[in-house]
Amino acid sequence: MTLVNASSRRKELIRIAARLFVVEGFDRTTVRMMAKDMGIKSGSLFHHFRDKQEILCAVIEEGMHNALALANHALSEAHDTPRGRLDAMVRAHLETLLTDRNAHVVALYEWRRLDDESRSHLVHLRDAYEALWKEVIEDASEAGLVYGDPLSARRFVLGALNWTVRWYDPEGPRSPESLAQELVTMITHSPASPA
């Protein structure tokens, strides 16, 4: 069950579905609503997807692939220090929220709507992303940058970052970079490193 493919039309349909799932919620979004917004007939949707559950899985899968790609790229470009890697992960997570907001929101709020098959298909992506965070937070903890239990720290940081989808305005006066630096400063009790 690999849902991500290179079809530009399929990717467009996934983006439209993600927006509808955010606005209406998964349960209230109908196939007819999706088809209307996609500019196709309801039956045509099934040329691309087996059912609504597969669409939900595809939305989350695409968002998770993008998040992993951004995180891996950020880490490859980061200063090779615990602080540099933590800065990179925070910035990458915020970038994911800003560039792929709908897919991220769907993953956060509709994960529980996945059936067992879809959840089993996606869990390795979630685990791979969390493994990156685990390593970065544990390194920061060992370096004395983060205090307390690393698991709690990781959950706190991800929770704080994920909540920004509710209140952060990318068009407002605060840049994503300054927001990332402020968060890292709060959790490490140390001033931001030079960019």
Rank of each mutant, 00 (worst) to 15 (best):
D80G: 08
V136L: 14
L122V: 04
R126G: 09
E171W: 03
A128Q: 13
E142Q: 13
A140F: 01
L122I: 03
R113C: 15
H93F: 09
E138D: 14
R174M: 12
L179C: 10
P82Q: 05
T185V: 05
S141W: 07
A180N: 12
E171A: 15
R85L: 01
V146C: 07
R155V: 06
A74W: 02
V136M: 10
A128W: 03
A143C: 11
L132T: 04
G148D: 02
S118H: 02
T96G: 13
R126A: 07
S120R: 14
A107H: 03
M89T: 04
E117I: 07
P176E: 07
R155S: 11
R83T: 07
E177L: 06
I187R: 03
R119E: 14
L114T: 03
Y129N: 10
L86K: 08
I187C: 05
L122A: 05
T99Q: 13
L151P: 02
K134I: 01
G172E: 06
H79Y: 05
V184L: 08
T185L: 07
R112E: 07
Y147L: 13
D115R: 09
N102M: 09
E138F: 00
L151M: 06
E142P: 01
Y147P: 00
R91Y: 12
P173N: 05
G84F: 00
D127Y: 03
D149W: 07
G144Y: 04
A92K: 07
L161R: 03
L94P: 03
S120Y: 09
V157K: 04
Y109F: 12
R155C: 09
S76Y: 02
H121K: 06
A103T: 05
L145M: 01
P173T: 02
L108D: 07
P170E: 04
Q181K: 14
L132Q: 13
N102S: 15
W111A: 00
T96S: 13
R174S: 11
E135I: 05
W111F: 05
R166E: 09
L158I: 10
L151E: 09
E117C: 04
W167V: 15
L75V: 11
L125Y: 07
